[in-house]
Simulated scan of single mutants.
Amino acid sequence: MNSSGSFRAVLSPARAEQVVRRSRFIGYAWPARDFEALEAALARVKAESPGATHVCFGAVVGGGPAGAAVERASDAGEPAGTAGRPILGVIRQRGLVQTAVVVVRYFGGVLLGAPGLVRAYAGTAALVLDRAPIGVFRPFVVWELRVPYSLWGPVSALWQGRPGVQVGKVAYGEEVRVELAVAEEESAELASQIAGRSGGTVMPVEGGVRWLPAGN
Rank of each mutant, 00 (worst) to 15 (best):
E185R: 14
P86K: 06
L180I: 15
E179Y: 09
R15G: 05
A32H: 08
V104K: 03
P163K: 03
S198A: 14
L111M: 12
V136N: 01
G5R: 02
G135E: 10
G161Y: 00
V142M: 03
G81W: 07
G161C: 05
E175W: 01
S6N: 08
G173Y: 01
E186Y: 06
I26W: 09
P65M: 04
A132Y: 14
L212E: 13
Q98R: 09
G5H: 04
A188K: 09
W211H: 13
V202H: 05
G95L: 01
R146I: 07
S4Y: 12
W143N: 01
S6W: 02
G109A: 08
R21T: 00
G168M: 03
A47N: 11
G108W: 07
G161I: 02
R131A: 13
A37I: 09
E185H: 13
P79N: 06
V209E: 15
K169E: 14
P86S: 05
L112E: 10
L111V: 08
V101R: 06
L190N: 14
P31T: 08
R105C: 10
Q166K: 13
G89W: 01
A80S: 14
L112V: 04
L151S: 10
V20I: 11
G95E: 07
R131G: 11
A41F: 00
T124M: 09
R162A: 06
G63V: 02
V167T: 13
A73R: 12
V103W: 14
V60I: 13
G84Q: 08
L111T: 07
D34G: 04
V176L: 08
P133F: 09
A52L: 03
E206Q: 14
F137P: 04
A157V: 13
E174I: 10
V20H: 11
W159S: 05
R197L: 10
L145A: 01
E17Y: 07
W159T: 15
F107S: 09
A126T: 10
E184F: 02
S156F: 00
N216W: 12
D34C: 04
D75W: 08
A114K: 10
T124N: 11
R177L: 10
K169S: 12
A52T: 10
G89Y: 03
N216M: 07
R162I: 05
L88N: 11
G64H: 02
L145Y: 08
L212F: 02
S187V: 10
A181V: 10
K169G: 06
A181F: 05
A114F: 05
G95C: 10
S12D: 12
S150W: 01
G58E: 05
Q193N: 12
P154Q: 08
M203F: 00
L127W: 08
L129P: 11
R92K: 13
T99F: 11
R210K: 15
A100R: 09
V142Q: 07
G116I: 06
L88K: 04
G27C: 07
A52F: 07
